[in-house]
Amino acid sequence: MKTEPNEVHNKPKLVTVFGGTGFVGRAVVAALAKRGYRVRVAVRKPEIAYYMGPLGNVGQLQMVQANIRNRKSVDHVLQGSDHVVNLVGVLSESGKQRFNAVHVQGAKNVAEAAKAASINMTHVSSLAADINSPSAYARTKAQGEIAVLEAVPTAVILRPSIIFGHEDRFFNRFANMARFSPFLPVIGGGETKLQPVYVGDVAEAVARAVDGKLMPGGVYELGGPDVQTFRYWMEDMLRVIMRKRAIVSIPWWLASLQAKVLGLLPNPCLTSDQVKLLKSDNVVSEEAKKQGRTLEGMGIHPEAVDTILPAYLWRYRVAGQYTKTGFA
Rank of each mutant, 00 (worst) to 15 (best):
R71A: 07
S249I: 04
G53Y: 07
V275F: 02
L264K: 09
A207K: 06
V227I: 11
N100F: 15
D201T: 09
P266Y: 02
F327Q: 13
K260P: 11
P12M: 02
A117S: 11
L277T: 09
R173I: 12
H9N: 11
G106P: 07
S280N: 13
G56K: 03
V85K: 09
R173E: 13
G326R: 00
G19A: 07
A246P: 13
P46D: 04
Y316N: 08
Q62F: 04
Y198M: 08
N70S: 11
V199D: 01
A178H: 06
V283H: 02
V248W: 07
L78F: 05
G320T: 08
L87E: 03
L270N: 07
A209F: 03
F180G: 10
H301D: 15
I131M: 09
A319Y: 14
V104N: 09
R293A: 05
S161M: 01
S118N: 12
Y316R: 04
R245C: 08
A31V: 06
V110F: 01
A311L: 14
P310D: 04
N57T: 14
V64P: 04
Y137N: 05
D226R: 14
A151Q: 00
L184Y: 01
L264N: 03
G217P: 01
P216N: 08
K244P: 07
G36C: 05
A101C: 04
A151M: 02
S81D: 09
Q143L: 15
D130R: 10
W252E: 12
G89E: 03
A288W: 00
T16A: 08
L214W: 09
P134Q: 04
V8L: 15
I247M: 12
G299P: 05
P54I: 12
P196A: 05
V85E: 04
N100Y: 15
H76P: 01
N120G: 12
F170H: 14
R208Q: 14
V28R: 01
M237S: 00
N70D: 14
L309Y: 10
V199C: 07
H166P: 09
H76V: 10
I250E: 01
L295Y: 04
S285C: 10
I119P: 11
F164I: 11
Q62N: 11
H76D: 12
F174L: 12
T140I: 04
E4L: 13
H9Y: 15
K34W: 09
I163E: 01
V28D: 01
M215G: 03
D211K: 09
G53Q: 11
G36F: 01
V283N: 02
G144A: 06
R169D: 15
G217D: 06
P46A: 02
Q97T: 14
S181D: 02
I146P: 03
V84D: 02
